[in-house]
Design a protein around this nucleic acid. Structure first.
Length: 271
DNA sequence: AATCGCGCCTGACGGC
DNA sequence: TGCCGTCAGGCGCGAT
């Protein structure tokens, strides 16, 4: 499921192939994503040149001259570069065709993703405007988390997954970072010391960097733009490992429900 | 303001 | 074999 490392892997995979190239057409096979794909997307895009491929949190930004395509991969989305003659498969909802005879193809079985068009700076879009800092940028650190968490009674794990606090940390990387930092996922966010937040911020950065280096995590769906899976799954310490021994102390990994999601942790190492 | 729970959607999987 | 219930979950949104 695409979190920040998977989106970044995708960004790096597609950028060299489409940057500087002109869009020749758009094929929408299924517009019903989280929000409908804009019916006039083809008119808006035809003839425009992609100037850069950016990322804000889990949003990919295909920045053209005057405007940008905003893409979210949701739970099951992936983007691939294909030959336009390659026949589309089930769930291949959108093709963006380029004059260099490449085709950027969006596949999204669960259709939780989104494709939007923004006429001006995409970072001003309502969905992006109130996002928290990038975890790998310098304005994110333990002191920032400490400040934002004062007075908050919510548990640290949903706090970390709140994209107004920090972007890009989904269920997998929240579990892994908390394990690495030795913090119990159910602990109230407002009852964690500054020093522990410093360790947590480092753990988040370390986890995300290692996952990016491995090309992301593939559980079921995720494939890179070249069609390869991510290899970080083998490095997961707790996620998806309920009942297995903790890598550090051998206590069986526990699984609990937090909100609507599964949380994995070691009840001995995380306090 | 903070917090909680819902619903969107398909595929995999287990039980009968 | 086939059917049905459950789970996976990012995230905006409405209710409290």
């Amino acid at each position: 499921m695409p979190e920040l490392p998977e989106v970044e892997t995708t960004r790096r995979g597609i950028a060299p192939h489409i940057t500087g190239h002109r869009i020749s057409g758009v094929i929408v096979r299924e517009p019903r994503l989280r929000w409908p794909i804009p019916p006039d997307l083809g008119q808006k895009l035809r003839g425009r040149r992609i100037q850069s491929v950016g990322r804000r949190g889990k949003y990919l930004l295909l920045e053209a001259d005057q405007g940008a395509v905003i893409i979210h991969l949701g739970m099951s989305g992936s983007l691939r570069l294909v030959d336009p003659v390659e026949p589309p498969l089930r769930h291949d909802h959108l093709d963006i065709l380029f004059e260099n005879d490449r085709c950027l193809r969006l596949r999204d079985p669960r259709r939780f993703g989104a494709v939007l068009w923004m006429e001006s700076d995409p970072r001003g879009h309502g969905l992006l405007a109130r996002l928290g800092p990038e975890p790998l940028e310098s304005d994110f650190d333990g002191d920032y988390l400490y400040g934002r968490s004062r007075g908050r009674r919510t548990a640290i794990k949903p706090f970390l997954m709140d994209n107004r606090i920090v972007v890009g940390v989904g269920n997998i990387y929240a579990c892994e970072s908390l394990y690495l930092a030795g913090i119990h996922p159910l602990r109230p966010a407002g009852r964690i010391s500054r020093n522990r937040y410093r360790r947590l911020a480092s753990s988040i950065q370390q986890t995300l960097c290692q996952a990016i280096a491995a090309g992301g995590t593939t559980l079921r769906d995720f494939l890179s733009s070249e069609g390869r899976p991510g290899y970080f799954r083998q490095q997961l310490q707790v996620y998806g490992r309920a009942g297995e021994p903790c890598p550090r102390c051998s206590t069986p990994i526990r699984q609990v429900r937090q909100g609507q999601r599964s949380t994995f942790f070691c009840s001995r190492c995380q306090t």
